[in-house]
Computed example of a mutant assay.
Amino acid sequence: MNPEEVSLPGPPASGRAGWTFLTNHGHVLLAVASDPEIRVADIAGRVGITTRAALQILKDLESGGYLRRTRVGRRTFYTIEPHQHFRHPTEAAREIDGLIRLFSDPAPQER
């Protein structure tokens, strides 16, 4: 298995290879949004990727203007840059803030 793929519980319903609606970039962004003091190793563990992949994604997000990196001593902190737009032309009119809000709201409770 590719270390950047996350295995989901249970077999895919279609019998085809598993996929998700959010990319690893989206999951990393949401991890930083949920905990600005999160460590890179914890991001990698949460997303299901290697630390090296997490660092590359953080670099991509920083160079794309979606987050800002700040060093304080030996620690690195990431801050989400608000009001940035999605990259794909279909969603380019929307800001990432909506995605972050969607996933920061408590999950609906099962009935």
Rank of each mutant, 00 (worst) to 15 (best):
T79W: 04
G45T: 08
T76I: 13
E95Y: 13
P9G: 04
T51Q: 08
P108Q: 05
G18F: 09
N2C: 08
G15F: 09
T23L: 09
Q109F: 06
R46M: 12
A44D: 10
M1N: 12
L8C: 06
A31C: 15
A92L: 11
G15N: 03
R39V: 02
I100D: 10
V6I: 04
R68M: 04
M1F: 12
L102G: 00
L102H: 14
W19A: 02
L99A: 10
A107F: 13
R39M: 09
P82I: 05
H88V: 11
S7N: 09
E95M: 08
A54S: 07
D35Q: 14
S7W: 02
V28C: 11
T23M: 05
L67Y: 06
A93M: 07
W19V: 12
Q109I: 06
E62Q: 14
L8Y: 13
D105E: 07
L55W: 09
H85P: 02
A44K: 04
Q109N: 04
A92P: 05
L55H: 11
P3R: 00
I57D: 01
P89K: 11
N2V: 06
T20G: 05
E5H: 01
I80C: 02
T79E: 15
L22T: 11
E81S: 03
Y78M: 03
H85E: 00
G45N: 07
I43P: 03
R69E: 10
K59L: 11
S104Y: 11
P3S: 13
D97E: 10
T90H: 02
G98E: 15
H25P: 08
E4H: 04
Q109V: 13
R16I: 01
E81L: 09
H83F: 12
S34T: 05
G10I: 02
P36F: 00
G26L: 03
I49Y: 01
G64F: 02
G18L: 04
R87K: 12
H88Y: 10
R52T: 04
N2H: 07
A44P: 00
P82Y: 04
H83D: 15
R94E: 12
A44G: 02
G73P: 14
I80W: 02
H27I: 08
S14H: 04
P108T: 03
P12E: 01
M1H: 11
L55R: 14
L67C: 08
S34N: 02
S104R: 14
V6W: 07
G98F: 07
T90I: 12
